[in-house]
């Protein structure tokens, strides 16, 4: 499990795909991140991350329906794979562990 390493943005995207469960394609993912995290996401950055995650096996995709606005271009829906879920778990666990190890004193310094 040591090889699993998610970047910050990768983690955000992966989580958002999970959040959107079943309705995760380019536009919705972008909107979701922008709304929830109040940060701007370009389609370019998003797409390249999605493809990378897919290539690593954290996501799968399938072509969906289209509509008039998309002029016949299909939506590409993403879903988290079991492996992807494991990756999320691993990331979360590793963070938690670090949190636990953090001395209380340090936190209070804030």
């Amino acid at each position: 499990m040591k090889k699993i390493q998610l970047g910050e943005f990768e983690e955000v995207v992966l989580l958002t795909v999970g959040v959107l469960h079943g309705n995760a394609y380019g536009v919705t993912i972008k909107d979701e991140i922008e709304q929830r995290l109040d940060r701007e996401v370009t389609i370019g950055a998003l797409q390249i991350t999605l493809r990378r995650l897919e290539a690593k096996g954290f996501l799968t995709s399938k072509l969906g329906e289209s509509n008039e606005i998309r002029r016949g271009r299909p939506k590409l829906f993403f879903e988290i794979t079991a492996y992807g879920k494991k990756a999320l778990d691993y990331t979360k666990e590793s963070r938690d562990e670090l949190w636990k190890a953090l001395p209380k004193l340090v936190l209070k310094l804030k």
Partner: peptide
């Protein structure tokens, strides 16, 4: 195809 679709929708 899907990127263009996304762009159009956007």
């Amino acid at each position: 195809a899907d990127i263009e679709g996304d762009l159009l929708e956007f």
